[in-house]
């Protein structure tokens, strides 16, 4: 049998070639180092693609979309949510009640978004200033009166800048720190740890359901060692995104649960941290959670 070309091998690896042809490819691979190496390189393409971090949405794009969605919300026919629903919406956001002022009949999307995002923004600043392990230590508090706009630096997109900058000042009415321009007209973005850019650290902890809370606290008390960074698959990134839904991450650890390989995911969730133990099937669409707990 002649050597396999990359496309045939890729289709075979995807399970698209079966039957006698598949069997002959299997037999060929068993005796051919060259084609086996080619197969490994194809696997490497997928692994390489999975390793590229998800880029954060540039702030100007985020602001533009916020504005567009606000306009959509404003032009929607008024359709009041039921009182019970409104009450539950408030209950779902602990810590927000105190800062919630008057409620206009049709509040603008941007005003609300600034308030909802505020706790996240605080963590953002903390992570940018001190690094992940410092920011997440028990009792670490960083206070800021600035809204989300202040903590998110402005990315480069000179074309759209003037109009967006103007709209950011108006409706938000929050202090926006003057951007410090870098050499290329861009502003360094504080590193916010999310599903897109987290580092997976190794832990020797074998978590158990009964002692999960204590074990997570103990683990978080130890600084995460950057040297122990583990490879992150696209599936794990998708899983973490699925679990945390954009919340700021505190720690992602490769560990064990009841003796089996599992991943500890800790995210800041309002005033408390939430910890999940994700099983091997956790992905973008499957929340394979073996255990979960709140960490005060």
């Amino acid at each position: 049998m002649a050597h396999l070309d990359a496309e045939v091998l890729a289709e075979f690896r995807a399970g698209l070639i079966t039957g006698r042809r598949g069997a002959s490819i299997t037999a060929h691979l068993a005796g051919c180092d060259r084609c086996t190496a080619l197969g490994d390189q194809l696997a490497g393409v997928s692994a390489l693609l999975a390793s590229v971090p998800v880029p954060a949405m540039p702030d100007l794009v985020a602001q533009r979309l916020d504005t567009v969605l606000a306009a959509e919300a404003a032009s929607r026919p008024v359709r009041a949510a039921s009182p019970e629903q409104a009450e539950r919406a408030r209950a779902d956001r602990p810590g927000q009640r105190a800062t919630r002022h008057r409620r206009t009949p049709r509040p603008s999307f941007r005003l609300l978004s600034a308030r909802v995002l505020a706790p996240v923004a605080v963590v953002l600043l903390a992570a940018g200033g001190y690094g992940l392990s410092r920011a997440i230590g028990p009792g670490s508090q960083v206070t800021s009166s600035a809204g989300s706009a202040a903590s998110r630096s402005v990315a480069s997109a000179p074309k759209a800048a003037p109009s967006i900058a103007a709209s950011a000042h108006g409706p938000l009415n929050t202090p926006v720190s003057p951007p410090v321009r870098g050499a290329q007209g861009t502003v360094p973005r504080p590193q916010r740890i999310t599903a897109a850019n987290f580092t997976l650290v190794a832990s020797a902890t074998n978590f158990a359901a009964a002692t999960l809370g204590q074990q997570v606290e103990t683990d978080l008390g130890r600084p995460a060692s950057a040297e122990a960074a583990q490879p992150v698959t696209a599936q794990l990134r998708a899983c973490v995104q699925n679990l945390t839904r954009g919340a700021a991450l505190v720690r992602v650890e490769s560990a064990r649960f009841a003796g089996q390989p599992a991943t500890l995911v800790v995210a800041r969730n309002g005033s408390a941290d939430t910890a999940w133990i994700a099983g091997p099937d956790c992905s973008a669409t499957s929340r394979d959670v073996l255990a979960t707990t709140s960490v005060p």
Binding site: L65, A73, R76, R79, S82, A89, S113, V116
Partner: peptide, 12 residues
């Protein structure tokens, strides 16, 4: 159902 915040939160 008419909640003005919900879609923005989902998007974020």
């Amino acid at each position: 159902a008419g909640d003005t915040e919900a879609f923005g939160e989902l998007f974020r």
